[in-house]
Design a binder for these strands. Structure first.
Lengths: 359, 359
DNA sequence: ATTATTTTCGTGTGCGCACACACAAATGTA
DNA sequence: TACATTTGTGTGTGCGCACACGAAAATAAT
């Protein structure tokens, strides 16, 4: 491991000059710059990141704009925990995180939190662009201020985000299609269950449904696929609607629930009807895992949301500290979780959050 | 983030004294030690690991003893790549890696490489304890010399390894049992395919088989399970034996191949017989992935071997640098790979290895 | 040729910590 | 009382790098 001092000695110049070349600070004559670059090359010199971090002593304020989670919607707890884990790892490199959470059913809260966020003048932003139109307003400001940003979990094309970190929703549905086909017999039917609260993550969910159907189509599977829309806002009615539907369509042997609130569906179904059903859901929330454990859900497609949060911070940190430009899309694995490998889906997501970290 | 200097100022002593307390170097009066510890506690002080690593400038020689890989047996390439990745990440923290590879079919090569390894007087050892008896000799020496070691991929109980990193083989087989059951119809049969080269990883493979049968038993599944032993040393005979077997047992619709050489089996089977077969294999080697891609294999159980290598070095580094004691077993996830999520199994394993890194 | 200006480069300090060394106070020994 | 030994504490240097400052060399302006 050659150090700057070593290189300086070899090149016959001072350490300062080497430093200038490495960081393109300018003020070095073309001749010596070439010479030094060659020597750096030859010794394939790399900065000692440890020493570099220590000396530079720079602070990077990274602000995150993600949905709140609550008892009903626990999904966003996982990315948050991933963010905090990464923060813990990178804080000694000068990365500082501040989280802003908004109500995912209220776009004004999204805008409000963003305004607060912008006031703190962050160096970079990680956001879950739940609302498409509002997001376009938001990123316009970020673009103007030259603040880099990345999209977490939800993707919108055509904007200047440095990357997207999340799952390919179509593929997630596609895999579900295969699992459904595997689970059912020749002449069974299945239903795609949509909930009224879908308005939020609408894009991802419709892509999952497209993927699900896509698999069946690509493989020429003549499975009878019904559609069911449930309004979860009124649990009593929802429950009734669900059970009546199943009653009327007793040949249905599978349900495809393309949202993270799969366990809500399983919990609404009467026990006698639940037994023979093959229900495929999304995301390893606490309730979903419980439902899987109890055998109510047969499959969960995990997108490793914890890792998405972690990777978002890591990617942004690498971008800020080392100017490492990520690829345009970073796709999370499509992980198949069944009762028998459930323990590996529990990840760190079910730890408790003690305090809201911030800078 | 309070620094030692801050603490020193608060405590009214010098930085050196704080340093002594933090590192238990002794030579501090009981009274001031208590006082300082209290202050450290109050400010929940943590060392800046960056500065710490830079200043200490310690070197840790970690030697790895793992099987060679070749065209026939590519499995061990993945852990090696993981090891190298981790090395790259931790080298600036003073971790130095030296790899010793042995012939996994020749225990004398194992002992020979270990002898070489020991000559270099490593601070810690990561090893794949392929041979049980020889391993007991080996760890006895390590124990005597007080050199910490951990087991990678293969587990042997009752020894003083600081941890085991790898898959729970029984569970891997158990999940396979479920997948097989899902794939087959009511009255189909399946076969467990064993190969003569199994002598090596014998323990893990027999545990997988036990797990496979365990699932069927636990769920009262009356699947007809046959056994087939194939001697791979003679490919022509093997091929013949395999196809004859399938010919004679046309009701067999599934094969369980509990080894990483699953693609060898699929490639031996005549095309007409291959189509209707549901073959479940292990490990995401290049050839297995190809076989999965081509639809010959239906499922692969991955143990994320790359991560096993990475985690081994990470765990050992944390142990050496921060004295962080790992839990006794670190289990790798049981990942279900199908054609549709294959891209996430490709990981970094298929990059090319340029050079043999060492210290 | 002299001075002013720009380009090019060297030096010094500090990031937070580890560790060697020096020194003072406390205790023991004669 | 004088000296040796032990215990307790402070100081200084360096890890590899970032960056500010200032000095020297090269060039331009007068």
């Amino acid at each position: 491991m050659a150090t700057i001092k070593d290189i300086a000695k070899i090149a016959g110049v001072s350490e300062g000059t080497i430093d200038r070349v490495i960081h393109n600070r300018g003020g070095v004559s073309a001749k010596t710059e070439i010479k030094i670059k060659k020597i750096l090359e030859e010794h394939n010199f790399t900065l000692n990141p440890i020493a570099s971090a220590l000396a530079s002593n720079k602070k990077y304020k990274v602000s995150c704009l993600i949905p709140q989670y609550d008892e009903q919607n626990t999904f966003w707890k996982s990315p948050l925990l991933g963010i905090l884990k990464a923060y813990d790892e990178f804080k000694t490199f000068g990365v500082q995180i501040k989280n802003y959470t908004f109500n995912q059913f209220d776009s004004s809260s999204y805008l409000k939190q963003f305004a607060d966020l912008l006031n703190e003048k962050p160096h970079a932003v990680v956001l879950a662009p739940i609302f498409e139109l509002e997001t376009k307003q938001i990123v316009e400001q970020l673009d103007t201020l030259n603040i880099p940003y990345l999209f977490l979990n939800i993707d919108i094309d055509g904007l200047n985000n440095i990357t997207f970190i999340g799952q390919d929703s179509y593929k997630g549905g596609y895999v579900s299609g295969k699992l459904m086909h595997l689970s059912l017999e020749e002449h069974d039917a299945c239903a795609i269950v949509q909930t009224r609260l879908n308005i939020t993550n609408y894009l991802a969910i419709s892509k999952r449904i497209k993927g699900f159907k896509g698999y069946l189509k690509d493989h020429n599977i003549k499975l009878n696929v019904l559609n069911l829309s449930i309004d979860l806002l009124n649990p009593i009615l929802a429950k009734e609607a669900l059970n009546t539907f199943l009653e009327n369509h007793s040949h249905i042997k599978g349900l495809f629930v393309p949202t993270s609130r799969s366990s809500v569906i399983t919990d609404f179904i009467n026990e006698d009807k639940l037994k023979p059903l093959h229900i495929i859901g999304f995301d390893t929330t606490k309730n979903n895992l419980k439902s899987l454990q109890e055998g109510k859900l047969k499959f969960l497609i995990s997108q490793r949301a914890f890792n998405q949060g972690y990777d978002a911070i890591k990617t942004m940190s690498d971008f800020l500290i080392y100017k490492k430009v990520p690829s345009k899309k970073i796709y999370s694995p499509i992980q198949i979780i069944i009762k028998e490998n459930i323990e590996f889906a529990i990840e760190e997501s079910n730890k408790d959050l003690e305090s809201a970290h911030s800078y």
